[in-house]
Design a protein around this nucleic acid. Structure first.
Lengths: 396, 396
DNA sequence: CTACTTTCTCCAGTTCGAGGACAAAGGGGG
DNA sequence: CCCCCTTTGTCCTCGAACTGGAGAAAGTAG
């Protein structure tokens, strides 16, 4: 099926499309209040958008005291695909033009199988969503991958946990396969955009979004825009040193944060604790399944296991130590904690908060909320939809 | 004397003024090459600027193969004042509209005497520059202070080393006294703007500018613009912890970078070394003057004193450790080292480089120059002039 | 039913800008 | 010194775009 290829012709139209995306259906009059255009100019631009089919009439709005206005909204048939490729699983979701999730699938998977295998699976998941009647096709897709990306080209560069992806033309390949525009970004940046659009970071211009999963990364938002750095590796905080001459890390250095606290490190520490017998709870879990993950630690902690709680607190302290430094440096208006280990919940959050509030200067922490992300796994896919919609809703 | 109060009427004019500021005198044709306006439109805007008096005709340009063009330039009588208030001295300079320094005075001073005393001195220095015939008045002034500033209002907030300045309306007070528009910013940000305009950071969009003086701070430039953070305290890296439970710092915490390496800490370490007799060079210097400063350490190091060199290397390592973290996080295209202790020169730079290149990931450091600032004490004052000119050369 | 509010359309007047034509100014070769 | 080419600057005209007002349409409140 042929999809929409129309694009806004100028900055005004782009602005209007984004307002409709972020604010939902709206009347001409309300739009006029927000964009500072003359009524006539606004009417012309709206008419053109109606001509392109990007927006459609949507009945009458409630009266604001006088004549009721005709609502307009983004075309209800528009569909964006959000794909969040993690180290061990993939999330794929369809959204409408307002970035509301209509359907969401998660499947386990190993990125190390390489791009070809992974995309096969992603395409199958997308097809499944389409087959379930949620979409007749996709007008754009935003993809997140767990590693640095050269953003303009949409190509992963030297991703440590994704051997075989280096230089793979993700954007171009998927654009071909899906038959729609595609944008590719780091998964952490996508999470940041998701929380910004629909989560805790609404209306915050400058914030950090720390994602603790298999690795640790940090999305940086400056003035409402994701900051990616000179080579696209900004936010790669997992390999900041927290302990001189500390534990060896997979990256070759010693004492990296990730060597102490990440899904992998936590699992290893938990297994060690199980072997040493210091934690009955972890021990029984280990005997049941033969291995431990962050989920087990979370469960043990919830059951009140002291060792598990200690592990979480120790990790939270180290993470907090790094975040404290970043807060001093970056002075954000908000810090969001997300990712797989968010299941560790408030124990983790408390440890991080303690460390940050103790180590950073009052001026920077005075009014600084440190909170858990509220979207969980949907943050990434919403961020993906947001990424591609930002691209499509900008002047051609 | 009455000064220029004209301001550009629109974004085009602002753009042209900045081009003339950054590129010097220019012909209409050359400007046209850069701004993507039709010749007629360009001519109209230039004529209007000529009417305001902000720019003037400046003779004929060399031929580019055909008819010679009439150059235009910013009004040669325009004068900006750059003021860089340090912890222990003040720099005041006059520049023309192209931000070339016409006169520069430095005087020792103690910020802790409070804003009133300091401004008296600054005004006297400005008057001296004016009296020497360099300026008949000032069209704007940019002020740097050694602490966080609420930028829009131009008011220092909770500055640790400037008791008595908290909340003092610097911008308003100086604007009254000087009779011209004033902008106030952190001194580190000014240094970053200076190096960006006329120093090593020309044509780099994203970079860090680390200033090591009485304290340690870091200017952050994102997409060519200084980033100041939510409360104006971004870049305050002096109080990042480098040693858990380490030396007590003036801020109340322990193990801050500044407690180990800054003008003050270095002087103290040097005096300790002198007392212990581990360094003959420092010892004799101490006996001569009764106290030691970073300058003495630099001189001793230059003379080959092993203890002094060790002090510098140790400090450089700690600083490098912090910068390595920032590089991983921020992925800048350049790191500039500046400030008072730059006199320590290449020993310091080498220590910092070693640490950063060893600790940060290859993708971030692959093509990352770490260099000394090339403007020295003029970076701050040029940055001040740049700050106010950016303000004045923007649409009213 | 009337007065008032809000929304939307239409229209006329005006401003703005693009682009072509042309004059002015210079270089270089014969 | 003349002719031709290049570059620069100005002028002019046409078309497009924008503003603001008038007024119709569609409500609400009393």
């Amino acid at each position: 099926m042929r999809r929409m290829t129309a694009r806004p012709a100028n900055a005004h139209q782009a602005r209007l499309l984004r307002l409709l995306r972020d604010g939902g259906p709206n009347s001409r009059a309300q739009l006029g209040d927000q964009v500072d255009l003359s009524r006539s100019k606004l009417a012309v631009e709206v008419d053109r958008l109606l001509d392109t089919g990007l927006v459609v009439a949507d009945g009458l709005a409630a009266s604001r005291g006088g004549r009721r206005s005709h609502n307009i909204r983004l075309a209800p048939a528009l569909r964006f695909l959000g794909v969040d490729i993690g180290a061990t699983s993939v999330d794929v979701a369809v959204t409408n033009a307002e970035l509301e999730v209509l359907g969401h699938i998660n499947q386990p998977m190993d990125v190390r199988e390489g791009p070809v295998a992974v995309f096969e699976q992603v395409l199958a998941m997308a097809a499944k969503l389409r087959a379930s009647g949620l979409a007749e096709g996709f007008d754009g897709a935003g993809i997140g991958v767990p590693g640095p990306v050269r953003f303009p080209e949409g190509v992963p560069v030297a991703p440590p946990i994704m051997p075989g992806w280096d230089g793979f033309p993700v954007r171009e390949a998927l654009s071909q396969d899906l038959g729609c525009p595609v944008m590719v970004d780091n998964d952490v940046n996508l999470m940041a955009m998701g929380e910004q659009h629909a989560g805790v970071a609404r209306s915050v211009a400058d914030f950090l979004c720390v994602k603790i999963g298999t690795g640790i990364g940090c999305g940086i938002v400056v003035g409402g825009e994701v900051y990616r750095g000179t080579t696209g590796s900004a936010g790669d905080i997992g390999h900041i040193q927290v302990e001189p001459d500390g534990r060896p890390c997979a990256c070759g250095n010693k004492g990296c944060l990730e060597a102490y606290f990440s899904g992998a490190a936590l699992a290893r520490d938990a297994e060690d604790a199980a072997h040493q017998g210091s934690s009955p709870e972890l021990c029984t879990r280990f005997e049941n399944s033969g291995a431990l993950t962050a989920v087990d630690v979370a469960a043990a902690a919830a059951a009140g296991d002291a060792t598990a709680l200690d592990l979480i607190r120790a990790g939270g302290n180290r993470t907090g130590q790094v975040i404290a430094g970043l807060v001093s440096f970056f002075n954000p208006g908000l810090v969001v904690i997300g990712g797989g280990v968010t299941g560790l919940g408030h124990t983790l959050l408390a440890a991080i908060r303690t460390q940050v509030y103790r180590q950073s200067l009052p001026l920077a922490t005075g009014n600084l909320p440190i909170v858990l992300g509220e979207l969980g796994p949907t943050a990434g896919v919403i961020g993906g939809a947001r990424l591609i919609s930002d691209h499509l809703f900008s002047p051609a």
